[in-house]
Simulated scan of single mutants.
Amino acid sequence: MTENEPGAAPAGTRNIHNINARTLRTLGHPLRIQLLSSLREFGPATASGLGERLGESSGATSYHLRQLAEGGLVEDAPDLGKGRERWWRAVHDGTMFEASEFRTHADPVVRGAIDVVLHETATTHAQELNTWLGTMGGWPEEWQRGWDLSDFKIRLTPELAQELYKELHAVVESYRDRVPEDTEGSAAVRTHLHVFPRPSE
Score class of each variant (00 low, 15 high):
Thr2Cys: 10
Gly7Leu: 10
Ala8Arg: 06
Gly12Pro: 00
Asn15Lys: 10
Asn15Val: 14
Asn18Met: 06
Arg22Phe: 05
Thr23Ser: 05
Thr26Gln: 00
Gly28Glu: 10
Gly28Gln: 10
His29Asp: 12
Pro30Val: 02
Pro30Cys: 06
Pro30Gln: 05
Leu31Asn: 09
Leu35Pro: 02
Leu35Lys: 02
Ser38His: 12
Phe42Trp: 14
Ala45Phe: 02
Gly49Arg: 00
Gly55Lys: 02
Glu56Pro: 10
Ser57Arg: 05
Gly59Cys: 09
Gly59Pro: 06
Thr61Arg: 02
Ser62Glu: 11
Gln67Pro: 02
Gly71Phe: 01
Leu73Trp: 01
Asp79Tyr: 06
Asp79Gly: 13
Arg84Thr: 13
Glu85Trp: 04
Trp87Thr: 00
Trp88Ala: 06
Trp88Val: 03
Ala90Pro: 00
His92Ser: 11
Phe97Lys: 02
Glu98Val: 11
Ser100Val: 12
Glu101Tyr: 13
His105Ile: 09
Ala106Gln: 05
Asp107Pro: 03
Pro108Asp: 00
Arg111His: 01
Arg111Tyr: 05
Gly112Thr: 04
Ile114His: 02
Ile114Pro: 04
Val116Lys: 04
Val117Glu: 07
Ala122Ile: 08
Thr124Met: 12
Gln127Pro: 04
Glu128Pro: 01
Leu129Gln: 03
Asn130Thr: 12
Trp132Asp: 01
Leu133Phe: 14
Trp139Asn: 09
Trp139Gln: 13
Pro140Ser: 08
Glu142Ile: 15
Arg145Cys: 07
Trp147Val: 07
Asp148Pro: 02
Asp148Ile: 06
Ser150His: 13
Phe152Lys: 00
Phe152Val: 03
Ile154Phe: 15
Ile154Leu: 15
Pro158Arg: 09
Pro158Trp: 05
Leu160Asp: 06
Gln162Lys: 03
Leu164Arg: 07
Leu164Ser: 12
Tyr165Thr: 13
Arg178Lys: 15
Val179Cys: 03
Pro180Gln: 07
Asp182Pro: 08
Glu184Tyr: 04
Ala188Cys: 11
Ala188Leu: 13
His192Arg: 04
His194Trp: 14
His194Arg: 15
Pro199Tyr: 11
Pro199Trp: 07
Ser200Asn: 15
